[in-house]
């Protein structure tokens, strides 16, 4: 079974669980003690708000999916100002070094989290994060090359690097230097290594890149753009904040499928959550 089909199946069973009364059952058992009842009311209220949010989020995902379907893939040469979808490979032009992986890339984003525990609560807390959204890069297809200004984009790329370190695992020298330069230590007060998690996502040169954004006049004046680049035009975020700008290494079809799954999950899951949580809430509040 393909991953999208599996995702759809998972979402279906989750919705089925909610519809079949997962939340009301939880609410019923919560009504035995007053402490559990208070917690139950809180969970149901949170679920209700979450359900409404998921419902509208699902429609936003559906809108993006349909928008993506309605705009055919364009070649760089055929691009005209307005919303466009292009697909090509990242050009090896002024690449960076990924701050965590050390790999050559044209775009990166990273996050360094620390494991924090206090009493019963424990969670990962972000202590350092960043990306290279202010630095443009180029993509090319068989008809030309165009600049992409990633600022303001929604980047959908898989994790390319992840590492967890703890008391017995040392942080690699390159990463500890990087953290030191930013004034963050990887050691605790007593000199022990902190429990840290390092995550990096990046696009390497020659990676396939799909871009859905607004083709517009480029305001950036590069001193040495790569030869063959379309002059004067770039793909960037549109003037309105609601305009879609997606950057991904997945294909258009994969993204459409993924947005479709999110829409299904959000709309039907949200609806089921609203029903289930409302039922539980009314039961717990004793409104008959």
């Amino acid at each position: 079974m393909s991953p999208p089909a599996l995702r759809r199946l998972g979402a279906f069973f989750f919705v089925l669980f909610l519809v079949s009364g997962g939340t009301p059952v939880f609410a019923y058992y919560s009504s035995y003690s007053s402490a559990d009842q208070g917690r139950g009311i809180l969970f149901c209220a949170a679920g209700l708000v979450g359900g409404v949010a998921a419902f509208f989020w699902g429609f936003a995902q559906l809108r993006t999916k349909r928008l993506m379907q309605d705009i055919p893939l364009s070649t760089v040469r055929a691009m005209a100002p307005g919303l466009v979808e292009i697909s090509g490979s990242a050009v090896d032009w002024c690449p960076f070094e990924g701050p965590l992986s050390g790999r050559k890339c044209v775009y990166y984003e990273y996050e360094i989290e620390q494991y924090v525990s206090s009493g019963k609560n424990c969670h990962w807390e972000t202590i350092l994060s960043g990306n290279s959204k202010t630095s443009p890069f180029f993509i090319q297809d068989e008809t030309g090359m165009v600049m992409v200004a990633p600022e303001g984009s929604k980047v959908i790329i898989p994790r390319a690097y992840q590492l967890e370190t703890g008391v017995f695992t040392e942080v690699p020298g390159r990463i500890s230097d990087f953290m030191d330069r930013r004034g963050v230590s990887c050691r605790s007060f007593f000199g022990f290594e902190k429990k840290l998690r390092f995550t990096e996502r990046h696009l390497e040169p020659v990676d396939k890149v799909f871009v859905m954004g607004t083709c517009q006049e480029s305001s950036a004046r590069l001193t040495e753009p790569p030869s063959g680049a379309t002059s004067g035009l770039c793909v960037a975020k549109g003037l309105r904040s609601s305009e879609v700008f997606i950057l991904s290494d997945e294909s258009q079809r994969e993204l459409e499928s993924s947005f479709g799954d999110h829409a299904f999950f959000g709309i039907f899951g949200g609806l089921a959550l609203i029903g289930g949580c409302l039922y539980g809430l009314l039961n717990l509040l004793g409104i008959a």
């Binding site: 349909r66 949200g270 609806l271 609203i274 409302l278 039922y279 009314l282 008959a288």
Partner: peptide, 27 residues
Amino acid sequence: ITATVGTVVAFFAVLGLFLYLVTVFNG
């Protein structure tokens, strides 16, 4: 309770249908 929940879910279902039609129309 069932009637209240049913009404609220039906409201959201109708709202969903309306939003879907708006999405299709705009598309």
